[in-house]
């Protein structure tokens, strides 16, 4: 019982500082965003300028965010979904329309990333960062020319490959090698993709969507298909020595765009719009690029970036391979899960 008494005492001491938080009363913004995607300095600058306190909650997949958002338990003012989720949320009427008048910095955006198919006219979303999915090759270990998905899975690099742990991605690559549009997902096209994926899986060493770069750096894999941001970080880590080369697959690459949106019924819409306008400022947007070298859609911010950042071929790939975006596929997602679980569980 003395054990319990001591425990209680310790607890009381430790809980003391907590009481100070309850007393605070000021305007807040509840931000629900990808983990490690909104750098702390960006938030601090916002609070310093506006006095608005930002409560941050994070998620690590679009669907995990949807689960908590749509269950309605918590109230968020700003969310950060990817393009196909924006499309789905607009369809379900779950987003508030943006008041463009309060977003004067919208003009800083590159026209290539505005008015896209998932949100025509950007009525509901403002792009945050964009990126693509491509091939990374450790040129010290692999001397062959690698240009597409088929080269990665030629059978030569058995158990040296890392791929994103994302079933839809893997299926889309198989579709691309077959010349089928990546958004054309049906029982029929999946049946065609199945043998291709089946041939690929035994060659893969690891599935990782979170930090495949670590596996490259620690020598566990030599080639892989990963987010362009991961490739950009590898390029930066090796100081552009060319050890890790980024290739957009010739079969057809695709890109993604993460955006900021205000969910229906948000309590602090004005603060949310202030935040959106805040991140559209060139110097703030450049801060984000500093931490996450994805493709910055902000033209004015790009002008502030150092030459070597702009020269990072994974962030700003040269050339003009056609880049698709994912469309919302609704219930076919479960067909993909079924096929992939079947192939992976043996």
């Amino acid at each position: 019982m003395k054990f319990i008494r001591v425990l209680l005492l310790l607890l009381a001491v430790l809980a003391l500082p907590l009481t100070t938080f309850a007393a605070e009363k000021r305007e807040v913004l509840n931000l629900f965003c990808w983990s490690e995607y909104v750098p702390q300095p960006v938030i601090e600058a916002f609070t310093k300028e506006t006095g608005i306190k930002v409560n941050v909650e994070n998620y690590d997949s679009n669907e995990k965010m949807l689960a908590k958002l749509l269950a309605g338990g918590a109230k968020y003012d700003l969310i950060q979904p990817s393009e196909y989720v924006v499309e789905s949320l607009i369809k379900q009427g779950q987003l508030e329309e943006l008041n463009r008048a309060s977003l004067p910095n919208f003009k800083n955006l590159d026209a290539k990333f505005t008015d896209m198919a998932h949100d025509p006219g950007n009525k509901f979303s403002v792009p945050w960062m964009a990126g693509s999915v491509g091939i990374v090759v450790n040129t010290e270990k692999i001397k062959d020319e690698v240009t597409g998905y088929a080269d990665v899975f030629s059978g030569k690099y058995r158990r040296r490959i890392v791929v994103l742990d994302d079933n839809r991605e893997i299926v889309s690559w198989a579709l691309a090698t077959l010349g089928i549009p990546i958004n054309d997902i049906s029982k029929d096209t999946l049946a065609k993709a199945r043998p291709v994926v089946k041939g690929w899986l035994p060659q893969i060493k690891a599935f990782d969507s979170d930090s495949p770069k670590t596996k490259f750096l620690k020598g566990d894999v030599d080639i892989g298909i990963v987010w362009s941001g991961e490739a950009a970080l590898l390029w930066r880590e090796t100081k552009g020595s060319g050890k890790f080369r980024f290739v957009l697959p010739k079969e057809g690459a695709h890109m993604f765009v993460d955006s900021l949106c205000i969910p229906k019924g948000a309590a602090h819409r004005e603060a949310a719009e202030k935040f959106i306008n805040h991140i559209l400022k060139p110097e703030i947007s450049a801060l984000i690029s500093k931490d996450f070298p994805y493709t910055n859609p902000n033209t004015a911010a790009r002008a502030l970036l150092a030459a070597e950042e702009l020269g990072n071929p994974a962030s700003y790939p040269p050339g003009a391979t056609k880049l698709d975006i994912f469309k919302d596929i609704g219930k076919t997602a479960r067909e993909i899960d079924r096929m992939m679980t079947d192939l992976r569980s043996r």
Partner: peptide
């Protein structure tokens, strides 16, 4: 299984999560 096993042998805990987080079912 995904961190130490590279996600090659999915376990039922992961598969259940997939239904909520990617399989949308």
């Amino acid at each position: 299984s995904s961190l130490m096993g590279g996600g090659r042998t999915p376990m039922i805990g992961d598969v259940i999560q997939n239904q909520f987080f990617t399989g949308r079912d």
